[in-house]
């Protein structure tokens, strides 16, 4: 699968407009990235409410740090680094069990593009269910790469590990997810 590559120019343009103080650009930036950010937080915390709170915390951190962002092209990894820090603070405060089981009651059920996932089209519900059983490191890299659409280099920036480690972690995570889903009878 070709690596997902967000429209760098568009994001960079939005970021620069925000840095200039064009207020309407803030709305554009939030609308462009709130979905991937929320999915990342939702998948790593397991709750809609927690994801909403952490997303708000992350966005406030973004708005406060934006004037100092020197490389607008690297906005996405920077955004997820802030989200990861907010998540770590949240877990440290003990408000939730780290990477607890995912509540599937309201998880979206539309199919997800399989990409590098094994087998055929996977149901998003199934993927979420599988994610819940993955170890934190594998779950996080899978979410960042597949649900937040970050490229390998972006994942490496967010996680603070070399790109090679991201690739091996992704490989391991996919294999584990495939095993989990196969065990549950999703091997199609």
């Amino acid at each position: 699968m070709a690596e997902p590559e967000p429209e760098k120019e568009d994001d960079a343009l939005l970021v620069v407009r925000c840095q200039l103080g064009e207020r309407q650009a803030f709305t554009g930036l939030v609308r462009a990235w709130h979905g991937p950010l929320w999915r990342y937080l939702r998948a790593t915390t397991g709750g809609d409410g927690v994801a909403d709170d952490l997303a708000q915390e992350t966005w406030i951190g973004v708005l406060r740090g934006l004037p100092k962002l020197r490389e607008p092209e690297r906005f996405a990894p920077w955004l997820f680094t802030i989200a990861r820090r907010a998540l770590a603070d949240h877990l440290r405060r003990g408000r939730a069990a780290p990477f607890g089981s995912v509540d599937l009651a309201d998880a979206p059920g539309a199919p997800v593009d399989p990409g590098d996932f094994p087998g055929d089209v996977l149901d998003r519900l199934e993927v979420h269910a599988g994610l819940a059983d993955l170890p934190p490191a594998e779950r996080e890299v899978l979410v960042l790469f597949h649900l937040a659409d970050l490229p390998t280099a972006g994942c490496a920036d967010v996680l603070g590990v070399p790109a090679g480690t991201v690739k091996s972690r992704l490989f391991r995570a996919r294999r584990m997810l495939r095993d989990i889903l196969t065990e549950r009878g999703h091997d199609r």
Binding site: V30, R31, D52, I60, V112, D113
Partner: peptide, 19 residues
């Protein structure tokens, strides 16, 4: 083919406007 991301909550929009 994934579902569209959640809409940006109104409360978040208001908070960010204040920020």
């Amino acid at each position: 083919r994934r579902p569209a991301p959640r809409e940006v909550p109104e409360e978040l929009v208001r908070t960010l406007a204040r920020e």
